[in-house]
Design a protein around this nucleic acid. Structure first.
Length: 593
RNA sequence: GGUCCCAUAGCUCAACUGGAUAGAGCAACGGUUUUCUAAACCGUAGGUCGCAGGUUCGAGUCCUGCUGGGACUACCA
């Protein structure tokens, strides 16, 4: 009923039939640029060939047709082949009347699409604390889940914890050698940081041994393979795999430290999971599938006994799926876990992996193998690939300690929020507890928005020296605008009934309604493109627009009661959309700040 | 060597997926508060969209080549 594009599309299609006897033509619409008069713009260039008319003539002919036949159209103008169409204020006002009581504008009802999606994200290693790169993963995954839910899908948020492997053994070994029984309690250190400390210690030992061996005349490569400490770590991994009691016990202990730490960080940034997977349970999966793949001739055995798949016809290379000693490689278990998940959740229709773009190739191979094994759902697997977070001097490396630690950053942001807030001095009457919540809301808002406003596909730069801004295109700016609206609504106390037909829209009011109207399409687009930054940029646009409105009119002092209540109601709807769009990003908004 | 990704204002990012005069924020400069929260608003300045071709009525966007940056290419995870 209020789908303007659909209405226009139908009317213009009719116009083309009536005017040129043309049917089934793809029409190209866009939002009218703000420098021109209108709401929607039809691009007419692609119609010149079939109609043999000039763009301007087509625009004029369609425009005239619309004026006669389409009641929602008020006026039109044609500029250089662009047909700008203005809808009647009446259309926008009835739309607004229709949605203004609705606090969930644009959101689809829960599970209304009937589609179930598993979205994997976070998936940390348990040998080190989370850094800014992991934060991007977590925020992106969590937000994407929210966006998909807003489109009516059921989302199972999954976390596959990489809790085993050589890297964990490195931490364990270094702790045994140097730890002197140190625990999170004894050191007053967060568990994941403590384990991470020994991961770095291992690397130091390892590097020293390599240097020593090189000095003795070995090549670097040889040294890396034969350094005693790495051999010891490998041995430890073998003992783990054979179920050695001591190793398993230490592994459990150190992992439990890490989990306590992660739990705290996850709670702090406000992400959650529906389903936890652990690689120690899944790493053997997939081996039996290799057998299946062999009988299907998808895989082949090489002379040395290893099993591989040739993907060179698909633009990829040969990929080993089983070592010559019969053990799995990483992709083997990925094949296994994917299949396992579709068995576990028969209703599953899509599987999304939130993993950095370093693994683009890996997922191409994985999906291709699944396809070749004959799983129909293989084409519903999607790699939500995101770019690395880089520092001014390059990529972050845990081993070398050149990382922005997640917990440190969150703490820093919190302190900045606290300092900025008290400098501005607008929080009289807040309790200690309310202040803490506010600082958290603002600091997380700043960080999350900073990360999510960037297109996930692109790498992004974080400059610790400049930190994250609280002014301009930022989370706190949007939160502030929300608080402003809430303040007005508090002061007004209530919105009285008003006759919408008495309203004459000013340009900015019209633009606000129009922008609210766009929200639904934005949510759909963000899901379609797997891109929360579309929501972030939208929230900013709406917020900026509202601030202009706010400066242009004093809402509370408006003497015309109809106008006043209309503007209050419009402000309220803006607050709903701002709140909902921020919620899709996993960001809270405060009533006061 | 091969494959893939990226390059837009001094800095960080947009550009509705091929459409109009490429837009925001930060930083710089100037203005706005006895009026609903100045974490705001208005204005000025800032661009050979890495370079060179091509396709198209139309290219930041698509194709080719080049330059610069990055990732992947392991019987690592």
């Amino acid at each position: 009923m209020f789908n303007a594009l659909q209405i226009l599309n139908t009317s213009i299609s009719n116009a083309l039939i009536s005017l040129y006897n043309l049917s089934s033509v793809e029409l190209s619409f866009q939002k009218t640029k703000s420098d021109f008069e209108g709401d929607f713009t039809l691009v007419t260039f692609n119609l010149t060939k079939p109609t043999k008319q000039s763009p301007d003539a087509i625009g004029k002919a369609i425009g005239d047709y619309l004026l006669l036949h389409e009641p929602i159209v008020e006026y039109y103008n044609v500029v250089k082949g662009f047909l700008n169409i203005g809808l009647k204020s009446n259309f926008w006002l009835s739309y607004f009347e229709n949605i203004r009581e609705n606090s969930g504008i644009g959101l689809k009802a829960k599970n209304s699409s009937g589609k179930t999606i598993m979205l994997e994200y976070s998936s940390p290693n348990t040998n080190k604390p989370l850094h800014l790169g992991h934060i991007r993963n977590n925020l992106l995954g969590f937000s994407m889940a929210k966006v998909l839910e807003a489109n009516g899908h059921k989302v199972i948020k999954a976390n596959l914890v990489n809790d085993r492997g050589i890297h964990i053994c490195k931490s364990m070994l270094a702790w045994l050698k140097l730890g002197k029984g140190e625990t999170p309690q004894s050191s007053k250190m967060k568990g994941d940081h403590l384990v991470g400390k020994y991961y770095v210690e291992f690397d130091k030992l390892y590097k020293a041994e390599i240097a020593e061996l090189v000095k003795q005349g070995k090549s670097k490569e040889e040294a890396e393979k034969s350094a005693p400490v790495i051999l010891e770590a490998q041995q430890m991994l073998q003992r783990w795999e054979s179920g050695d009691k001591d190793v398993i016990e230490l592994w459990k202990l150190m992992n439990s430290w890490v989990y306590d730490g992660f739990k705290e960080t996850y709670a702090n940034i406000g992400v959650a999971f529906d389903k936890m997977y652990y690689e120690s349970n899944t790493y053997l999966l997939g081996k039996e599938l290799v057998e299946e793949g062999l009988t299907k001739n998808v895989f082949y055995k090489k002379q040395n006994g290893s099993v591989a798949i040739d993907l060179s016809n698909d633009g990829l290379d040969e990929k080993i799926v089983l070592r010559s000693d019969g053990t799995s490689v990483y992709i083997t278990q990925d094949i296994g876990t994917a299949i396992e998940r579709f068995k576990e959740f028969p209703e599953l229709q899509q599987l999304i992996y939130t993993v950095g773009n370093e693994q683009d190739y890996h997922f191409k191979v994985l999906f291709k193998i699944l396809e070749k094994l004959g799983y129909k759902w293989a084409k519903e697997c999607y790699h939500l690939s995101y770019g690395m977070v880089e520092l001014p001097d390059g990529k972050m490396k845990s081993r070398e300690g050149t990382v922005v630690d997640a917990d440190d950053l969150l703490q820093e942001m919190y302190e900045t929020a606290e300092r900025t807030t008290s400098e501005l001095g607008k929080v009289e009457g807040f309790t200690e507890e309310e202040l803490k919540t506010l600082y958290r809301t603002i600091s997380l808002g700043a960080l999350k928005y900073f990360i999510l406003k960037v297109d996930p596909k692109k790498k992004m730069l974080f400059n610790p020296a400049e930190s994250i801004d609280f002014n301009g295109n930022t989370g706190p700016f949007i939160q502030y605008t929300y608080a402003r609206i809430k303040s007005i609504l508090r002061k007004a106390e209530k919105i009285e009934k008003f006759d919408i037909n008495r309203i004459e829209l000013t340009p900015i009011e019209r633009e606000l309604i129009r922008t609210i109207y766009d929200f639904e399409a934005i949510i759909e687009e963000a899901a379609k493109l797997y891109n929360p930054s579309i929501v972030a940029n939208y929230a900013y646009e709406l917020t900026k627009l509202f601030n202009r409105f706010y400066h242009e009119f004093n809402i509370i002092r408006e003497e015309d009661a109809t106008l006043k209540n209309f503007r209050l109601s419009l402000s309220q709807s803006c607050s709903h959309v701002i709140q909902n769009s921020m919620d899709l990003l996993g960001i809270n908004v405060p009533d006061r700040m």
